[in-house]
Structure formats: structure tokens, C-alpha cells
Amino acid sequence: MKNATRNVLPVTANVGKEGSGELVSSRYAVRVGEIDVVLISDGILPLPTSTMSTNVSDGDRNEWFDSRFLQRDMFDWALNIALVKSGQRLILIDSGVGDGFEYFTRAGRSVMRLETAGIDLAAITDIVITHMHMDHVGGLNVDGVKARLRPDVRIHVAAAEVEFWKNPDFSKTVMPAAVPPALRKAAATFVELYGRQIVQFDQTVEVATGVSARVTGGHTPGHCVVDVVSNGEKLTFVGDAIFEVGFDNPKWQNGFEHEPEVAADVRIALLNEAAESGALLAAAHVAFPSIGHVAKNGESFRFVPVQWDY
């Protein structure tokens, strides 16, 4: 089955100067109470569809991809980061994949897109890393980025995550062979570059007024999500806890999950939480801009993307 494609007219959120020359919007802004949140696309990661469902049959997997008019062999994973403005603090959530990965030529654009939006890297006061996979820390590893960040930037990472990457366990993952070495290298480079700026936390940390991170585990032992809460409104950036297939099939395990059974429980808990509260949800690997609501659908869930405000 061929991919379904469509042409899209340019859409641009009003967050700064324009002029990137890109034909499709790569950022989208929402306001959560008094807090501004901008989702930014770092690009696309083409990966085998088999990694999206390691505990189900090829037939079940193919049925889902067919229903979405997607190819059965390779899947374009969206890769999103977020920028949050709370008071005087400007918080970056994850940093994208960066460069140096020849098989990810369609990603690594977060720094360029921040600049296009008029965001000076030196204005960022805090960074939250949901977990230390290369597509979340790689943007910080790019040559020249550290020098452009403020020396006192605080990089919040769960203590369990830092500890895990000292000797990571890949025994329960199902990844392309080239990926684990790249993950190890990216994590080690990140710690080497930013060890002095890393602020470790145990279970939860308040990064700024209305912005906090909490450890969920599952995808990695120290994986965390970020809650943005203001004036009775809420958005949760769930990192890699929920993938595109996870709404319809929350028990499907992902090949990049280091604790796949725990990850499934975490995913279901977060989906139930969003469905019950009506809060907004955003994710690293849900189609850009990834912002929407979650509704119960029998034993599974339904993602309801926000209607874009032009």
C-alpha cells in the first residue's frame, strides 16, 4: 500500500521573526493558563515498523498501518521538542537528535528552528531531558551549541536516568543493530559536555512556576514527563511514553523501551489520566504538533488533535 500524501499550505505561529523558507509549519504555540508552550518539530526519523509493536504478529501490525494508509515496512516517526515560557524562565524540553547520524538526515533541525522563531539559545534558563536517548540529547551535543547556552543553564535529568546510562541494559530492547552504540555514545557525550550543568532529581522537580517534571520509568528507568499547569488548565508532554500506535493499542510494546512491560503500564496510566482530566497531551513521537486530548474508546483510547488556531 502506498503512503497517502497531501500538500499543505504554509502555517506559522506568531512566536518571532520569520524567514525560514520552509513550506510547512514546524512550530505551533498554545497557551496553558498564563504559560506559553511551543511545540517544535526536529524533523522525521525513518525506522522499521516492526519496532512499533514487538509483541504482536505481523498481521496485526500490518492491519494497523494499512488502516492509517502507511507503508508496512518503514514508518516516519515524528520528532518533537517543546519550549515553555513561565514568568522569567524559558524552558526547553529535549533537544532533538542533532547531527552525526547519517541515517537520520531528515531530522536534527531544532536549533535552526528555534533561531527561525527568534529564540536566542542564551535566553534558555532551563532544559528538561525526558530521557537520554540520542534523539532527545543529541541537539545539545552539536558543536557550538554549548558555547551559545548560558553558563548557568540548569539541565534537569532524573537521577535514575543518569545512573542507568553509566552501564545501560539493552537486553529487552529490539532495535536496529546500529542504534545501541549510537545511544551509548550520545548519552556519554551529553554527560561529558554538561556534567556541571546537570541537576539531578529523584521523583519530581519544580522547574518553574507551574512547570514540573516527574519520573515515570518504563521507556527508560529514569524517563520523565513534564506537566504544565496554570489557572486550572494543564498540558503534559509525555516524551516517549506514548507513540503513534499507543492510543489504539496501548499494550503494544516498542522496541526502544528498556522496560517494555513497565512502559505499557505507564502508557495506560498516562492515557487514563489525560482522558479523565481532559488535559492536553503532547508527545515526542506523535504526529506534529502532537497536541490534543485523549478519549476512552472501549479498552483502548482515541487521540483528538487540537484544531489549529490560525
Rank of each mutant, 00 (worst) to 15 (best):
V211A: 11
E299M: 04
A29C: 09
R150Q: 05
V174A: 08
S41C: 06
L281E: 06
L9V: 03
T51E: 08
N167P: 00
S110C: 03
R27A: 12
D42I: 15
R184H: 00
S290W: 09
I155K: 03
S300K: 02
G108F: 13
Q88R: 14
I81H: 12
S86M: 06
D227V: 04
V228C: 02
L90F: 13
S277C: 08
Q253C: 08
V228A: 02
S290R: 10
G98T: 00
G100H: 01
A284F: 03
L235F: 12
K2T: 13
I198K: 01
G59H: 12
V157F: 03
F75I: 14
V226C: 12
H219W: 14
Y194R: 03
D135Y: 15
T173P: 05
L79A: 14
W252N: 06
H136D: 00
L45S: 13
D248A: 14
L47Q: 12
G144K: 08
P48G: 04
R72N: 12
E273N: 12
A284P: 13
A186M: 11
E63C: 01
A159Y: 03
N55C: 11
K296L: 15
V137A: 00
P151W: 09
W308Y: 05
V225Q: 00
L280H: 09
P180S: 11
S50F: 15
T216M: 07
L270R: 05
H219F: 15
P181Y: 07
Y103R: 09
L23Q: 02
L39Q: 13
I81Y: 06
A13C: 12
G108D: 04
P48T: 04
P48K: 03
P181L: 07
Q71G: 14
S50V: 15
A208V: 03
L39G: 09
N297G: 05
R27G: 08
K2S: 13
V174I: 15
Y103C: 08
A241L: 04
I129L: 11
A287T: 14
